[in-house]
């Protein structure tokens, strides 16, 4: 599979604080990649870095972001603007706050469409069609509304529809289901997957919700304190997590009829310390963990892990046999 997006050794800082450190991830055409991790681990920052909207204090400290073979970091501001919304689009975390508070939805839509020199009428038709698929009643009325007149779930579906109107090649969804009830969540997930199946759009989806990721994603990225800890095939990661953190993360998912797991807690990590950021909470800590940053180790074609545990092993096969 060709890679649509390839992030190579990307580091991002906010001011003096390193937020992302040496991230390498790729998204293939038509792939759905799920990103999981605690709040503040840099999931959203990764998305903003790809789109070039890190804000005033954020900047890229090294690495490459290749989109269809071109390094986006070499693009001018104007080139980047053209990419945003048209080739790469974003579904934001807070649906209501992410729509302009005092402009009608249709005005926001047509503004975006005009900025990309597309036909407003066509885009409107497309928007109505997508809204219909999302089972939004009275799509015309919604287009004439302001964000504050709609519910959170409606706003979310409207923003997803708006992100898809220009048929982007990569859809980046930052917690797209957090504002939705379980039933609507399911519908939206199914729709996102249908979009992928129909138009081959790649989707990078960030979520706290392990269930959403395990349902949707082909591949999975596990992030912790600005690092990618594990990256690979979803099934493999969920069924045989390699990194101690991933193991704990999957254990920590609350399940119906089960008591909440104990002994797993979030710890504030000092990102400037040397060594593995997870070393203070890790069950399988070894002597190197305190002093050396682990390298990304390739276990097999579908699995990369950043942990000292695997530094001295040669292949993943041995590991799995061991496990």
């Amino acid at each position: 599979m060709d890679n649509l997006l390839e992030i190579k050794n990307l580091s991002v800082n906010y001011g003096l604080v390193p937020i992302l450190q040496n991230i390498s991830v790729s998204v293939g055409k038509g792939e759905i990649i799920g990103v999981v991790g605690e709040s503040g681990c840099g999931k959203s920052t990764m998305i903003y870095a790809v789109m070039g909207i890190l804000g005033k204090t954020g900047y890229v400290d090294g690495g490459e972001i290749l989109f269809e073979g071109d390094n986006l970091l070499d693009y001018s501001k104007e080139q980047m603007r053209q990419v945003r919304g048209e080739k790469i689009s974003l579904i934001a975390q807070n649906p209501i706050e992410s729509l302009h508070p005092t402009r009608r939805i249709k005005d926001q839509l047509s503004e975006m469409v005009k900025m990309h020199n597309m036909d407003v009428k066509e885009a409107r038709e497309e928007m109505l069609r997508i809204m219909d698929i999302f089972r939004l009643k009275n799509p015309e009325r919604i287009l004439n509304s302001y964000a504050f007149e709609l519910s959170g779930g409606m706003c979310q579906r409207v923003s997803i529809a708006m992100a898809m109107v220009l048929k982007p090649r990569l859809l980046m969804a930052d917690e797209p289901t957090s504002a939705l009830d379980v039933i609507t969540q399911k519908e939206v997930i199914n729709e996102l997957m249908k979009i992928r199946d129909r138009s081959g759009t790649s989707i990078l989806i960030v979520s706290h919700n392990m269930g959403v990721i395990s349902h949707m994603a082909d591949k999975m990225i596990v992030m912790y304190a600005g690092h990618v800890f594990e990256y690979g095939d979803k099934k493999q990661i969920i069924n045989h997590p390699q990194h101690p953190y991933t193991e704990n993360l999957i254990k920590a998912v609350p399940k119906i009829h089960m008591p909440l797991p104990e002994g797993i807690e979030a710890i504030r990590v000092d990102r400037t310390l040397p060594g593995c950021p997870y070393c203070r909470s890790c069950d399988c800590k070894c002597s190197e963990c305190d002093s050396e940053r682990p390298e990304m180790i390739r276990l097999d074609d579908n699995c990369f892990v950043r942990c000292h545990k695997y530094a001295h092993r040669n292949t993943g096969e041995q590991l799995r046999a061991h496990a």
């Binding site: 903003y48 789109m51 909207i53 804000g55 603007r81 053209q82 990419v83 945003r84 919304g85 048209e86 689009s89 974003l90 934001a92 992410s98 729509l99 302009h100 503004e111 975006m112 900025m115 990309h116 923003s159 708006m162």
Partner: peptide
Amino acid sequence: RMERAKGIK
């Protein structure tokens, strides 16, 4: 941020 993400000038 969202407007910027939509490629608004």
